[in-house]
């Protein structure tokens, strides 16, 4: 009798504890802040300044989520993560959202317990070499030593590329991006490879940025985007529509400067986005002013792009494919309706 009760109780406890808590939104609201996983310092995307304030394209996404969910773009706790540990940090619940120049791939989306919510930067992998090597094209790189990061798609792409071209290479893979740059700068490798936006960002850190050149070849598709844990659809929807709201705001011409004026607009698309009409915010489990807060506190996608990685920043990256579809790019957000 006693045994049976004990066993039953034990089994009951065992089964009850297996229920994973899935409502990230409730946890975030209770904590009053979003835990956001970012890089360990990639200028333009996520980089801390002297006082520890984070800024960049990926950081802005987390701030936008905080503005949408909590109404305060500063209610974010940033966790710098190496490429190696980023997915484990998200899986284990150490962070709520991963916004860390991470490439969306099938394996990551399907077998790592992640849910990619969209693309905030369309990128491709490139090569950087010293100008004095006289190399004009990646096809001349046979036999070169290549520095890269462990646990990245770049490590695989470079293997694929050299194999496809029938060229030899040696790979030197470091855990932290800073170590890759330092080793490349010290002459350990002939080539530094990562996403082209990353090359532009890391080049700023080199002893003599002008002595290096980025080769024209783009050897892969690297759609970089934020990811959340698989299995919490509501939280995934909030992340997805935060990104869509930023892009739609740019398309509709809503900026942080004119968002208050725009609230009085007669355009139904603007009205639906800013919450003066419809119930999109409530459907997401957020306030009606979720998108208003994003644009007011963080800005639209174009504003963020120009301030973090655009032509007037040290990275000098043109919009290129990252322009709106109406302006020759491929940025096309689903409509808010």
């Amino acid at each position: 009798m006693k045994f049976k009760t004990l066993l039953a109780a034990g089994a009951a406890i065992a089964f009850s504890t297996t229920m994973a808590s899935a409502a990230t939104l409730d946890d975030v609201k209770a904590a009053g802040k979003i835990k956001c996983g970012v890089s360990q310092g990639l200028p333009g995307f996520s980089n801390p300044d002297d006082e520890g304030n984070w800024s960049g394209l990926d950081v802005a996404f987390c701030r936008a989520m905080a503005a949408a969910v909590l109404g305060d773009s500063n209610a974010v706790e940033f966790t710098p993560l190496s490429a190696k540990v980023r997915f484990t940090a998200l899986q284990s619940g150490e962070i709520d959202v991963l916004s860390r120049n991470t490439t969306w791939t099938a394996t990551r989306d399907n077998s790592l317990g992640l849910e990619f919510v969209g693309v905030n930067y369309y990128d491709g992998q490139g090569f950087m070499v010293r100008k004095d090597l006289g190399v004009k094209s990646a096809t001349e790189l046979s036999g070169a030593a290549v520095c890269t990061n462990t646990g990245t798609t770049t490590e695989l792409n470079v293997a694929d590329y050299f194999r496809a071209q029938g060229m030899d290479y040696t790979v030197v893979a470091f855990e932290k991006a800073d170590e890759v740059v330092a080793a490349y700068d010290a002459g350990r490798c002939d080539v530094y490879t990562t996403d082209r936006s990353g090359l532009a960002a890391q080049r700023v850190k080199l002893a003599d940025p002008e002595a290096h050149v980025v080769l024209p070849e783009i050897i892969s598709k690297e759609p970089l985007g934020p990811a959340v844990r698989h299995g919490d659809n509501q939280w995934g929807d909030i992340a997805r529509w935060t990104l869509n709201a930023m892009i739609n705001a740019e398309e509709l011409g809503i900026t942080s400067a004119n968002v208050d004026e725009m609230k009085g607009s007669d355009n139904p698309s603007i009205k639906r986005l800013l919450g003066t009409e419809g119930s999109v915010g409530a459907d997401l489990g957020l306030g009606a002013d979720w998108a208003y807060n994003i644009v007011k506190q963080v800005g639209n996608y174009g504003e963020v792009y120009d301030a973090t990685v655009g032509p007037n920043t040290p990275l000098k990256l043109d919009r290129g494919v990252n322009a709106l579809w109406t302006q020759g790019g491929i940025l096309y957000a689903a409509p808010v309706r």
Binding site: A83, K84, F87, T88, Q91, T107, R108, S111, L112, G113, T150, G151, T152, E155, L156, V172, A173, F174, E175, K176, E179, A183
Partner: peptide, 21 residues
């Protein structure tokens, strides 16, 4: 793993872990 020597932690508990999750 800090200096890219391909030992067990760097390759197996690093790259392989990251790729397979």
């Amino acid at each position: 793993t800090a200096i890219a020597y391909p030992d067990l932690v760097s390759v197996f508990a690093g790259t392989v872990l990251n790729q397979t999750g």
